[in-house]
């Protein structure tokens, strides 16, 4: 194994590598291959039928569509949060900085019942919106809302450090050249933080696509309308349709893996830029 690595005087390569691989294999790889092998047993036609039935396709549309939209909303608000937290001092700043991570720490089921209570027709916000014809709970809007909630910290936390690191001089130079604030933002700041924004977007998206706990309480779970893909997997399981559930799960798995590869690539790109810049 020693031939695998470039020379390092530090001990423990073999142990660390062995342990990491065994643990990774036991907890992650082997269980995930169970999905693969189960899927392989069904044959291509059955697989295709399972993953492309109208109801399944509708759930992809909702899960992926709402997740994309939620991640886009999070890019906007996440950027505003990061901007405000990095650049301004105002009362409550410390509190916001700590609580932005709430969606990470709050169990999803708790978030789900709280959101459902607030946005249903007799909840504090639903009561205000419902007479105006805006329905959130038990519609696809509810799905979107829950996904925005759980995805918010991702963008804030990836953009915040980059924004903080942004060399003041660059901006000052721009100002010296006579660029307006908006031009400075568009031409200098935005390109600089774009990789971080993109990474945050991808992370929020990846998390949102698989989210279950917070969504099911508020979605209404109507087939073809407000039924997310993870719920569909559960539904299929409850109908004893293991093969179907596994097939849909494998589609989601492949997607997650690809998205992660992209995220890690983005992060590598970010680090390189960072290294060059400083």
């Amino acid at each position: 194994m020693a031939s695998l690595r470039r020379f390092s005087p530090l001990p423990g390569f073999g142990l660390a590598m062995g342990y990491t691989l065994v643990y990774l294999a036991l907890i992650v790889i082997i269980p995930l291959t169970a999905v693969g092998t189960k899927t392989l047993t069904m044959g291509w036609d059955a697989f295709w039928a399972a993953v492309s039935s109208p109801r399944v396709v509708a759930s992809y549309q909702l899960s992926f569509g709402a997740s994309l939209l939620a991640a886009a909303i999070n890019v906007v608000f996440g950027l505003i949060f990061a901007w405000v937290l990095v650049r301004y001092h105002f009362p409550g700043r410390g509190l916001i900085d700590s609580l932005v991570d709430l969606p990470f720490a709050l169990p999803t089921a708790v978030a789900g019942i709280a959101l459902a209570t607030i946005y249903s027709e007799n909840g504090p916000i639903g009561k205000v919106l419902e007479p105006r014809g805006i329905e959130i709970a038990y519609t696809p809007n509810g799905v979107l809302l829950a996904l925005v909630f759980i995805g918010l910290p991702f963008v804030v936390r990836t953009v915040q450090p980059v924004l903080a690191d942004l060399e003041k001089e660059v901006e000052e130079a721009a100002a010296g050249l006579g660029a307006s604030g908006w031009q400075t933002f568009c031409r200098i700041i935005l390109p600089h933080i774009a990789p971080a924004l993109l990474t945050g977007f991808a992370m929020a998206f990846a998390r949102a696509v698989g989210e279950y706990g917070s969504v099911i309480f508020i979605a209404g779970n109507m087939p073809m309308v407000s039924e997310i893909t993870p719920l569909l997997i559960i539904t299929k399981l409850e109908q004893y349709d293991y093969a179907g559930a596994t097939a849909v799960a494998s589609v989601m798995l492949i997607f997650s893996f690809l998205l992660l590869l992209i995220i890690n690539g983005l992060q590598g790109w970010m680090q390189n830029r960072h290294a060059k810049g400083s």
Binding site: R207, G210, P230, I234, L260
Partner: peptide, 20 residues
Amino acid sequence: TFIDLPFSVSPVISGLIFVL
């Protein structure tokens, strides 16, 4: 990437694999 995988796997699938 493999270490990160459980982050982005849907919790539902995380349960399903152990059932399988």
